[in-house]
């Protein structure tokens, strides 16, 4: 993945030079260690600003809607799945996109790395599968594979599913007998324990809506929590209102979520809101054999009716 950045820059430069696209959307180096920031590149001399590494945890499909001109976007496996979802849901047109696909070896779990240190991290670098992390008190050399985000560890679509060009060699995909062990763990609990699990999960939520806003499929012009006439949900810190937000947001993602992990990446309180969405992903998979964002020709399961749809929940 470290060498693909040269290819990304080269391709971006060419696209801008030949006026194939008006801008390139990618990641730029952040101002603090382990941070990158989505950026739009319009001038050839700025191509050098582009970076791609294990800290590019947000989903750039979130930045490609409402564009006038043709644009290029740097997209890892999950980003491309959300691009597919956007195309299926008529949010972007395929011909107005130039997709620079990046086969991905996973993004790092920043909170997990931070938790190894008592003080702030002042330096971060990576070399292949090795991470070098330094604070003012100590330095750690880590294996990236031990510090992957939870969603990346269970990812089965590391390679872009749709692209115009690849910025690196395809990587080997993982296959799991059970892709949803985390959901099973919660399913095995009784009602009370489940309830307690989700109460604990969201207890520090500050309703900043970073999870929703980082999510490429949360693009409603007005979210149900922001609707004021009628108002569907209270706006305070009451835990019922907080959980209603999380529950309904997750449900709105049913059959659409690609488990890209941008929601968790964005959360300042480190809440694994995927505990909600993963259940729906598992159900979509088991009931409809569906994984979101793999095929621009297929409508998502909740969009279509089929006589074979499971209906044993209806009495």
């Amino acid at each position: 993945m470290d060498t693909c950045i040269n290819k990304i820059r080269e391709l971006s430069l060419k696209l801008l030079e030949e006026n194939e696209v008006k801008k390139v959307i990618g990641f730029a180096e952040g101002t603090i260690p382990m941070a990158t920031s989505p950026v739009t590149i319009t001038r050839k001399q700025d191509v050098e600003k582009l970076v791609f590494n294990s800290t590019c945890g947000l989903n750039l499909a979130n930045y490609i809607r409402n564009q006038k001109d043709k644009i290029a976007v740097i997209a890892k496996g999950c980003d491309t799945r959300n691009i597919v979802t956007h195309i299926v849901e008529n949010q972007v047109q395929r011909e107005k996109l130039y997709i620079i696909g990046v086969p991905c070896n996973g993004m790092i779990d920043k909170s997990k790395i931070e938790s190894l240190f008592e003080d702030e991290i002042i330096e971060f670098s990576e070399d292949g599968g090795k991470l070098n992390v330094k604070s003012s008190l100590k330095e750690e050399k880590l294996n990236k594979s031990d510090y992957l985000r939870k969603n990346c560890r269970l990812c089965m679509h590391k390679n872009p599913v749709i692209y115009d060009v690849l910025a690196g060699d395809l990587v080997e995909e993982q296959n799991f007998d059970n892709p949803y062990p985390d959901v099973d763990e919660i399913e095995a609990m009784n009602s009370e324990t489940k309830w307690q699990h989700f109460e604990d999960l969201t207890k520090n939520c500050i309703r900043c809506y970073a999870c929703r806003n980082a999510c490429p499929i949360c693009y409603c012009p007005t979210c149900f929590v922001d609707e004021s006439g009628p108002q569907w949900v209270g706006k305070g810190q009451d835990k019922t209102d907080v959980n209603t937000f999380h529950f309904l947001r997750a449900f709105h993602c049913a059959g659409r979520c690609t488990d890209c992990g941008a929601c968790v990446e964005a959360c300042p309180m480190d809440i694994n809101v995927r505990d909600f969405t993963r259940k729906l992903n598992k159900d979509s998979f088991e009931m409809f054999g569906w994984e979101a964002g793999l095929d621009i020709a297929r409508r998502p399961p909740l969009d279509v009716y089929s006589p074979n749809d499971p209906d044993d929940f209806i009495k």
Binding site: S37, P38, V39, N62, I206, C208, Y209, A210, R212, A266
Partner: peptide, 13 residues
Amino acid sequence: AFSCINCGTCTYV
């Protein structure tokens, strides 16, 4: 503003 996702994190923290 380009990269901003319009969450409330900055204002709440």
